[in-house]
């Protein structure tokens, strides 16, 4: 039942996305939705390691930037079509996720969080000094002429983002209900106990870090074509990094739909404030929402939904028993 519901939802989203490219002419909407979806993929990616596995970290957004720069380098060197660049970027970021995971995942709690922050700074230093992709001065990336079946390249990018967002969500959902997801939840709750119950904790954490890296990579790969000019400041932007953490926190980290809800909500609010009030207010909006949720609903929106359902179930059980 539930499985069918999810896949019907997927089809509806894809169809809506496609229809959107036909009926909407104002390019602003494509830009706005693109940003929201980019946040969604990053939120889902962060949540695989930070939420499911409980390894809260500040460095994940660094993998987004690695995806951005992989994309620039591949485009400059081989001028590959975007879908190939995305796949390559996912593989490279996944491998880097695996490698850095191997180095950092033996740390716990705050120590892990700080190690990942340091890792992101290392990435940024590399980007600043890598002349081939523009170095500190940045680089222009021209949109290719070929926009496949779409009227403009922006529409094409938009559709790519819709597909990637659906893919990321489906992967994270699959992960959370699979045996691997159960193992990750056990690690999050108590790593020592999990290991003693036969859960291969290091292997699962590495899988989790690789998936996080790969998904961050696919979020970053289309970015250079979207904004045309990339420098380390925009790829390692604080707002992007903060969003990747804030969205799952607000949506709820324990369930696959948490980061999706958080990203759609926060992303939309940000786009609206950017247009109606000012783009400077964005971070303030994120900050106040974060404070509100951490104090009032630490389990996020998904946690609230879950409690509500459970509460109803319990009330039902009581009236029956």
């Amino acid at each position: 039942m539930k499985i069918n519901g999810f896949w019907i939802g997927v089809l509806i989203v894809l169809a809506l996305g496609y229809a959107f490219t036909f009926f909407v002419d104002n390019e602003f909407y494509f830009f706005a939705v693109y940003v929201v979806l980019q946040g969604l993929i990053m939120a889902v990616a962060w949540n695989v390691l930070g939420g499911f596995t409980g390894y809260v970290n500040f460095g994940s957004a660094g993998f987004f930037a690695v995806g951005v720069y992989t994309s620039i380098a591949l485009n400059k060197a081989f001028a590959l079509p975007l879908p190939l660049i995305i796949v390559a970027s996912a593989c490279i970021c996944g491998l880097i996720g695996l490698g850095t995971g191997y180095l950092t995942l033996r740390l716990k709690g705050v120590y892990f969080a700080i190690a990942t922050l340091a890792m992101a700074i290392v990435f940024e230093t590399v980007a600043n000094n890598w002349e081939y992709v523009g170095g500190a001065a940045g680089t222009y990336v021209l949109q290719p002429e070929n926009s496949f079946f779409f009227d403009s390249y922006v529409e094409f990018l938009f559709m790519v983002m819709v597909i990637l967002a659906v893919f990321a969500t489906a992967l994270s959902r699959y992960l959370s209900i699979s045996k691997i997801g159960q193992g990750l939840a056990a690690i999050r709750d108590d790593e020592t106990a999990a290991e003693c119950m036969g859960v291969p904790t290091l292997r699962l954490k590495l899988i989790s870090a690789s998936i996080m890296g790969g998904l961050m990579g696919i979020a970053g790969a289309p970015f250079p074509f979207f904004i045309s000019f990339v420098d380390p400041l925009s790829a390692f932007s604080l707002l992007i990094a903060v969003n990747a953490i804030a969205m799952p926190m607000i949506g709820g980290t324990a369930y696959w739909y948490g980061p999706v809800i958080g990203a759609l909500l926060l992303g939309t609010i940000q786009e609206i404030t950017t247009v109606t009030i000012s783009s400077e207010l964005n971070l303030l909006v994120v900050g106040s929402l974060l404070v509100a949720f951490i104090t009032l609903a630490p389990q996020g929106i998904a946690g609230l939904i879950h409690d509500l359902k459970n509460g109803r179930q319990k009330a039902k059980d009581k009236s029956h028993g």
């Binding site: 159960q182 939840a185 709750d189």
Partner: peptide
């Protein structure tokens, strides 16, 4: 464990499913 270490986000039966899915 001397100090119980339940998987606290899970129900009682889910706690048992972890070792069944992995160790056993």
């Amino acid at each position: 464990f001397q100090i119980p270490k339940p998987f606290h986000s899970m129900s009682v039966i889910q706690n048992l499913l972890i070792p069944l899915e992995y160790a056993a």
